[in-house]
Design a protein around this nucleic acid. Structure first.
Lengths: 219, 219
DNA sequence: ATGCAAATTTAAGTAAGCTTAAACTCAAAA
DNA sequence: TTTTGAGTTTAAGCTTACTTAAATTTGCAT
């Protein structure tokens, strides 16, 4: 499997995942930064290999086999991201582009060692789920949304969704990161903001921020 | 810089290093597993870029700039090898081919983090020197050859040259690895073999094995 | 000094993964 | 229902890093 193939399958999977609708060539071309002619070309080749369902002038989507491969690549990407951040202390801003290259070049064996080293993690540093070796995805709904937490009880931050770099910095400043213990002080129903205790500091979060945090109950 | 370029420069450096003589196309072709026509092609291109000194039908060698680049690539390779072995506990037999791929795809920033993580190491798991960021090579002659060690004194193993996988296994079985403390019990001058104490075990090494071990005096 | 074999170079061709530009399709508006 | 333009495909061409096969050079042995 070539890098171009890897990237095509990955982009197709993620694009489909982000929107709910099917994926058209132009979007793929934009995301992969190639011409739409190249997309058509690739689609035809991957269709021959049974990885993409494709009829000329129609939308395309991954076949079962294609999705399986896409998930493997995404697994590699997210494991690398987490490894680079947690073990080598790389800046979250650099971690994506680094993983973007490394994901294509590590052996299965190495990826499994990284997985073990990290303790079979469920989420990458952006809060995105890391597909398992089996191809299954960890479900965030095993987790509790912060909105539903009971004031007074203790929780562990399990996952924070970080699509914007500023958000990471903000949470970092308040000491909110996976593994951190926290308690809900109060919920303000009128605008759905919340007051938390993190460490021994009190923090006030807007609804938008609250929705990015998922918890595990403690004891 | 492409992967092909990386590999060409690296092979040219290492080949030159192994033998003392200049390097001919056929040897390069053999090592890189490409045709000699491809070697000529590459040589011409790299000569244009000022990385290789090349005149048709003559031997070729690296220019200053070429050697600088070769050392950078070798640095990456050896840092990866050590990282994979020490941090991710990969088998020494797999470490080379893994590093062979990763060396081309990690950023300078990542390599430096790996270097720091490992404590700016001087030698890779095969005992080969790791070029520094500056391009200089750690000299093994800061180290003591085992032959010259004084019986009774304590030493730390600094470097073991492992070109054959069996040798690694052998040393591993006797607990001999970088960082290990040892003492010389006796030298047998008639065949230059030696008896050592490693941990609390006594070990008898042939001359060939003795020559692979380099030491730092302890206190 | 000459011829020969080995090594090297040239020439021509291949494959992947692109590009641009022209041709085509299709669905939706007129 | 015809037109239109956005989106897609086809066609032709490029680059890199190879390949094989034929031509060339070299240095060594005679």
């Amino acid at each position: 499997m070539s890098i171009a193939t890897d990237n095509f399958l990955k982009a197709l999977y993620l694009l489909r995942d982000e929107q709910v609708a099917a994926v058209m060539g132009t979007q793929l071309a934009a995301r992969l930064e190639i011409s739409s002619a190249a997309v058509t070309d690739m689609a035809r080749k991957l269709a021959e290999r049974g990885l993409v369902a494709y009829t000329p002038y129609r939308e395309m989507e991954l076949t079962g086999a294609g999705e399986e491969l896409a998930l493997k690549i995404i697994r590699r990407h997210r494991l690398w991201e987490l490894f680079l951040q947690q073990v080598l202390d790389m800046d979250l801003k650099m971690v994506h582009e680094e993983a973007e290259r490394l994901e294509h070049h590590a052996s299965e064996e190495l990826m499994n060692r990284i997985d073990v080293f990290l303790g079979h993690p469920d989420f990458d540093p952006h809060g995105e789920p890391i597909p398992r070796q089996s191809g299954s995805l960890p479900e965030a709904n095993g987790l509790l949304e912060l909105q539903q937490a009971e004031p007074g009880k203790n929780y562990l931050v399990a996952r924070i969704i970080i699509r914007e770099p500023e958000v990471f910095d903000l949470f970092a400043r308040y000491g909110i990161h996976p593994g951190q213990r926290l308690q809900v002080i109060q919920c303000y129903d009128f605008d759905k903001s919340m007051e938390l205790e993190v460490g021994r500091r009190k923090v006030l979060l807007s609804e938008g921020l609250v929705q990015k945090i998922f918890l595990n109950p403690l004891n």
